[in-house]
Amino acid sequence: MHIFNSRKFFTCSSLRPDVNSPNIQPAFKYATIKLIKSQASCACEVKGHGVERQMLLTAVYKQRRILRLGKLLTVIGAGVAIALVSGFVWVTRSPIDLGQAGKAARADWTRAWQAGEVVALVRHAERCDRSDHLCLGPEDGITQVGNDSAVRVGKGFTSLGMQQAQVFTSPLTRTVQTARAMFGQDATAQPWLESCGSSLRNEVVAHKVAQRNLVLVTHSGCISDFEKQTGFPHAIAADYGSTLFVRIDAKGQLEVLGILNAEAWSRLNSD
């Protein structure tokens, strides 16, 4: 009886049967060859599965890239939309500039003045203590340059007509001097035009007399307070001598008409 020698039957490198070994029987040799062919076929199948797996991974990777690109485009689109909205808000965050507005806006403002429905909040002229220009008087007052600018603003109001208008000012020197330069006389001082704060809107409405315009010479902080209370919380700070125009009708309904800078009065008067 032939004894099978396992050490000669398998090679050390592959652990496959050595079909050329003289110790292997013919029948077993045939079976061994079939086994080797079967293993080769399995190896081909495994290789085939590996190719398919690689193709699948490639497709998944491409799909993920497309999804990431889509997300990136979405983020960029959202950023552009936010920038456009922010730009729009930035442009419209302050009342309209009446000096640059069309004739329709100016005509509306003029009609409201003629009807005695306007409140005009005027910022005082250039401060002496914050300028190198020659002071008009005390250091807490205005400069000579500011006084000249206030005179031009006053001429603009006079051209509109001051017959049905009241003029109030804060008690501080710079507003008193500004009002005097504008209208050639002292105005009535009102402490609430200095303190301002959250009650300013109500104070303005309470002091508005029907069919009489109201000119209030005050401060940039007060004008900012008023704008916050009337729908413009991020408005640009008022320049020296600029005027915020507001309409208050007989029912007490308030509408911000726009703002007019000091130098714009000259252009309006020449039109």
Rank of each mutant, 00 (worst) to 15 (best):
I3N: 09
F4R: 12
R7F: 10
F9K: 10
D18K: 13
P22R: 15
N23S: 14
Q25T: 11
Q25L: 14
P26L: 11
P26G: 03
A27P: 00
A31M: 09
S41F: 12
C44T: 11
E45L: 13
K47E: 13
H49Y: 12
R53V: 04
Q54L: 13
Q54V: 01
L56C: 01
L56E: 10
V60D: 06
Y61W: 07
Y61V: 02
K62A: 01
I66C: 02
I66H: 00
I66N: 01
R68T: 10
R68E: 04
R68L: 15
L69K: 13
G70I: 06
T74H: 08
I76D: 03
I76C: 08
G77N: 11
G77R: 04
G77S: 15
G77F: 03
A81K: 01
I82Q: 08
I82C: 14
V85H: 04
V85F: 12
F88N: 12
W90A: 10
T92E: 12
P95H: 10
P95D: 03
Q100E: 12
Q100C: 06
A101K: 06
G102L: 04
A107I: 07
D108Q: 15
D108H: 13
W109G: 05
A112D: 14
W113T: 12
A115T: 07
V118H: 01
A125P: 00
A125M: 08
D129T: 03
R130K: 15
S131C: 06
D132G: 09
D132P: 01
H133L: 09
C135Y: 08
C135Q: 04
C135W: 06
L136W: 10
G137M: 04
P138H: 08
P138R: 13
D140E: 14
G141Y: 09
G141R: 05
S149R: 13
A150D: 07
V151S: 01
R152S: 06
V153T: 10
K155H: 09
L160D: 05
M162T: 13
M162R: 03
Q163Y: 06
Q163H: 12
Q163N: 13
A165D: 01
A165L: 00
A165M: 07
V167D: 00
F168R: 04
F168K: 05
S170K: 06
R174L: 11
V176M: 15
Q177P: 02
T178M: 06
A181T: 02
F183L: 11
A187F: 02
T188P: 02
T188R: 14
W192K: 09
L193P: 05
L193S: 06
S199Q: 15
A206P: 00
Q211D: 14
R212E: 12
N213Y: 05
V215N: 04
L216E: 05
L216K: 01
V217N: 05
V217W: 04
V217M: 08
H219S: 03
F226N: 01
F226C: 03
T230D: 04
P233F: 09
A238W: 00
D239I: 01
Y240R: 06
T243E: 05
T243K: 03
F245K: 03
I248F: 02
A250R: 15
L254I: 14
G258W: 08
I259Y: 04
I259L: 11
L260E: 10
N261Q: 12
E263T: 06
L268C: 05
N269L: 15
D271A: 13
D271S: 13
